[in-house]
């Protein structure tokens, strides 16, 4: 696990999460890029409001998908760490 549990991730300025009706998928609008999200990534990012910390995000996902928090934690960490490096998620 890389990210501290108390991190409160949010979309960086200039990044927009939206549903792309023309292609029936969730996307992130970023500078000169469109990132296509799979179902899990879309669920994670909808919870990155700047209010919830990592622990709360994982708990919320675990409840929504009836899964063990431990199974979700690594995926969330990997996704968010990558997006922080790309300056798509701010902390």
């Amino acid at each position: 696990m890389g990210l501290p549990a108390e991190t409160r991730p949010k979309l960086a300025r200039g990044i927009r999460l939206q549903f792309d009706a023309a292609r029936d998928q969730w996307i992130l609008q970023a500078p000169e890029r469109v990132l296509v999200l799979d179902e899990i990534a879309a669920e994670v990012l909808q919870r990155c409001t700047g209010e919830a910390d990592i622990t709360a995000i994982i708990a919320s996902l675990a409840a929504a998908f009836d899964a063990e928090p431990g199974e979700i934690a690594a995926d969330v960490d990997e996704l968010l760490t990558g997006l922080i490096e790309k300056r798509i998620i701010a902390t």
């Binding site: 000169e32 890029r33 469109v34 990132l35 296509v36 999200l37 799979d38 899990i40 990534a41 995926d75 990997e78 996704l79 990558g82 997006l83 790309k86």
Partner: peptide, 15 residues
């Protein structure tokens, strides 16, 4: 460059 599409699972890459 056009906006590129990338998959988020598991690591972002060209889709």
């Amino acid at each position: 460059k056009p906006a590129s599409t990338v998959s988020m699972d598991p690591a972002p890459e060209q889709l």
